[in-house]
Simulated assay, not measured.
Amino acid sequence: MEQKHPLPPFTFETAVQKVQLAEDAWNSQDPEKVSLAYTIDTVWRNRSTFINGRRAVQEFLETKWKKELNYKLKKELWAYTDNRIAVRFEYEWQDQQGQWFRAYGNENWEFNENGLMEKRYASINDLPIDESERRLV
């Protein structure tokens, strides 16, 4: 059976570990690697986009990282319970024309007993920034 450690129920330490693993995976910008953290039938809301299934997650991320160049992400644990984790995050990226952005957001995650994410709800706002304002280098 497919598992992704640490498994719920989460403690403070394992919730922090799960968040760091997610940050590291997303910073790899490897859609296949990232998608393996989710159930086959995962359900996402990412901004106003609704995504269903691991394969759709992978396709979404492939498109995302073709558009969002020089991507760098930082996640922080906000709260946790038995099988749920809430994070705040920010990431910086550059578009094809060279404009930098910082995205701010919150995510709510729900995991199955095998540590795979079943649900991900993300609210995200983008802010254009000058290159000199970058914090995530």
Score class of each variant (00 low, 15 high):
Gly53Phe: 11
Val34Pro: 04
Asn112Val: 13
Arg88Phe: 09
Trp78Leu: 11
Asn52Asp: 04
Arg84Ser: 14
Thr49Ala: 13
Ser48Gly: 12
Trp109Phe: 14
Phe50Lys: 04
Thr42Pro: 00
Ser48Ala: 15
Tyr91Gln: 02
Gln99Asn: 04
Glu92Ala: 01
Leu73Met: 12
Asp41Trp: 04
Asn46Asp: 15
Val34Asn: 05
Asn52Thr: 10
Arg88Glu: 08
Asp82Asn: 11
Glu90Gly: 01
Ala86Asn: 08
Trp109Arg: 07
Lys64Pro: 02
Leu77Ser: 08
Asn83Tyr: 08
Arg47Ile: 04
Arg102Tyr: 00
Glu90Pro: 00
Gln94His: 00
Thr63Gln: 14
Leu73Tyr: 10
Asn112Trp: 13
Ala86Ser: 12
Gly105Met: 03
Phe111Asn: 03
Leu61Cys: 08
Asp95Met: 00
Lys64Asn: 12
Asn106Thr: 10
Tyr71Trp: 12
Arg45Asn: 09
Trp109Lys: 05
Thr63Ser: 14
Arg45Val: 10
Lys75Glu: 09
Lys67His: 12
Glu110Trp: 04
Lys75Leu: 14
Thr49Leu: 10
Ser48Val: 12
Ala37Glu: 07
Val43Pro: 00
Ser35Ala: 15
Asp82Thr: 08
Asn112Cys: 14
Glu92Gln: 03
Trp65Ala: 09
Lys74Glu: 11
Trp100Asp: 02
Leu69Gly: 05
Thr81His: 09
Leu69Val: 04
Ile40His: 12
Asn112Tyr: 13
Thr42Val: 14
Glu90Trp: 06
Glu32Leu: 15
Lys75Ile: 07
Asn52Leu: 08
Val43Met: 07
Val57Asn: 15
Gly53Pro: 11
Asp82Ala: 10
Asn83Lys: 12
Val34Met: 07
Lys72Phe: 03
Leu36Ile: 06
Asn52Val: 10
Ala79Ile: 02
Trp109Leu: 14
Glu32Ser: 13
Arg45Cys: 06
Tyr91Cys: 03
Thr81Pro: 05
Arg102Asp: 00
Lys75Ser: 11
Ala37Ile: 04
Ser48His: 14
Ala103Asn: 03
Lys33Thr: 13
Glu68Cys: 02
Ala103His: 02
Glu92Asp: 01
Glu90Val: 03
Trp44Val: 04
Thr39Ser: 14
Asn108Phe: 10
Thr49Asn: 11
Tyr91Leu: 03
Glu32Val: 14
Ser35Glu: 14
Arg102Cys: 06
Glu62Gly: 09
Trp78Ser: 09
Gly98Pro: 02
Gly98Lys: 02
Tyr71Phe: 15
Thr81Ala: 15
Leu61Ser: 07
Asp82Val: 07
Gly105Trp: 05
Thr81Gln: 12
Leu73Lys: 09
Phe89Ser: 03
Val43Leu: 12
Ala37Tyr: 06
Glu92Asn: 01
Val87Phe: 01
Lys74Thr: 06
Trp65Pro: 10
